[in-house]
Amino acid sequence: MSAQITSLTGRAWVFGDNIDTDVLAPGIYMKGSMAELAQHCLESVDPDFARNVQRGDILVAGENFGMGSSREQAGQALLELGISALVAKSFARIFYRNAINLGLPALVCADADKIRAGDTLSLDPAEGTLAIEGGERLSCEPIPPHLLAMIADGGLLPHLKKKLKGAAA
C-alpha cells in the first residue's frame, strides 16, 4: 500500500490569472541547471519570490495557471524552490499533468481568491478541503486516491518503478 498524503500545511504565496510557463521557467535559462532556472522562477511578476520562498510554502493562483508550453521545467522549478502544493482556480492542462506526474499536488479551488498572501493554509488533497488559519474553510476538487499515491511516491517515474518492481517480485 502506498503512503498517502493526508494533509499539508504551509504559507501562501498569491499570484493572479494566466501565469504562463515562460514566467515559471524562462526560456533563456532553460539550458542551465535546474537550481539556476529556479532562481528566475516567477521573477517577471515577483522579483523577490525565489529569494523569499521557503520550503513547504504553498502557491496560490487564479485561472489558467501554467498556460503555454509543455515544458516540465515549469513544475520542476517550483519543486526545486520547495513549494509543497499548488492551489488555483484552474490549471492549464499540460501543466496540471506535469505537476502531478512530478509529484507536486495541484488543487483546483473555485474560491482561491479568498486566500491572502501570507495566510497559513492546511490542505487535505484527498478530502478536497482547504482551511485558512483563523478564517474560512474552502472546498476544492479532491485529488483521487490513485493520483495521491503517485504524488506520495514522488511522481510518475518513482511510482512506476515501485509498481514494476512489485510486479516482478
Binding site: S70, E72, R97, N98, N101, L102, G155, L156, L160, L164
Partner: peptide, 28 residues
Amino acid sequence: DSHSTTGGAFAAFMIGIGATEMAGVMAT
C-alpha cells in the same frame, strides 16, 4: 507533441503529453 490534437479529425481521442508522461505510456 502538442499538436497531437490533429488526430481528433478522425474521431480519435488523441492528446499531447510531456516527456515523463510518455515514458509512463511507453512502460505501461
